[in-house]
């Protein structure tokens, strides 16, 4: 069975929001569109987005970490948002595990969003249906696109390639390998939702050097006047054996 998903590498995400607006841009003119923006030029502008990038601070100065944290639908394997939907508008595809909303069936009861612990669904206040990340299902199978572009818009956009896309059930896939190699983890494991999207933690490169590496025989200072042998008395001057 296939389970497509995103793997997000927090080790390189710089919080640029490229994934946010490229997602919006792709989807607003797609099947999910239009993605409503209310108050676009007045107080408290607010619109429907499938993906948000948030910022957290961890620890206290000076040992502070700043974390940029992108989040879209995690396409949970045991998606709690699906069974609660009274209409079947929310569904998880058998073939690739993508969780989708059928906008023609959705009655806008919002119940599925209550059932998502991650706050990944956003209600379109104008279209009155529930929307969420589609994993760009309208890109990834689109044969009119060149093969290397059959990827989610956010993945294509991400300048740090912090967003990997693939089948997390295929142990040989790039995403599975990334999860294995880098201790990839899931969000809120306590609810048994088994999110398909994974996050890769920060990894630090540290340096270790030994004091004696500072001084070396080929130290360039040895070529200068100041470090040449000084003209001071030594044993050579006073012994005679």
């Amino acid at each position: 069975m296939t389970q497509l998903a995103l793997v997000i590498d927090l080790n390189v995400c710089v919080g640029c929001h490229a994934c946010v607006t490229s997602c919006k841009e792709w989807n607003t003119s797609g099947p999910a569109g239009a993605m409503t923006d209310e108050n676009p030029y007045s107080k408290d502008p607010t619109g429907t987005f499938f993906n948000r990038v948030q910022t957290y601070e961890i620890g206290t100065f000076p040992k502070t970490e700043t974390l940029h944290f992108p989040k879209s639908c995690l396409h949970c394997e045991d998606a709690p948002c699906v069974p609660v939907c009274p209409t079947g508008a929310s569904f998880k595809r058998d073939e690739d595990g993508i969780v989708l909303v059928n906008y023609d069936k959705c009655i806008g009861c919002k119940y599925c969003s209550w059932a998502c612990p991650y706050g990944a669904r956003e209600f379109d206040e104008h279209q009155k249906v529930m929307k969420k990340c589609t994993l760009c299902v309208d890109r990834i199978y689109d044969e009119s696109l060149p093969e290397n572009e059959r990827k989610p818009a956010c993945v294509m956009a991400c300048p740090t390639s912090a967003r990997l896309f693939g089948d997390v059930h295929d142990p040989e896939s790039e995403v599975s390998e990334a999860i294995r190699d880098n201790a990839g983890y899931q969000l809120m494991p306590e609810w048994g939702t088994n999110p398909s999207n994974h996050y890769l933690p920060r990894r630090k490169t540290k340096v270790h050097y030994h004091e004696d590496e500072l001084q070396r025989a080929d130290n360039p200072l040895n070529k200068e006047h100041s470090v040449e042998p000084l003209d001071v008395p030594t044993l050579d001057d006073s012994t005679s054996w």
């Binding site: 607003t28 003119s29 569109g33 993605m35 409503t36 108050n39 676009p40 619109g47 104008h126």
Partner: peptide, 11 residues
């Protein structure tokens, strides 16, 4: 004039 709502859909 500014729109009170934007629902961009190309085309």
């Amino acid at each position: 004039k500014r729109r009170s709502i934007v629902r961009y859909f190309a085309g």
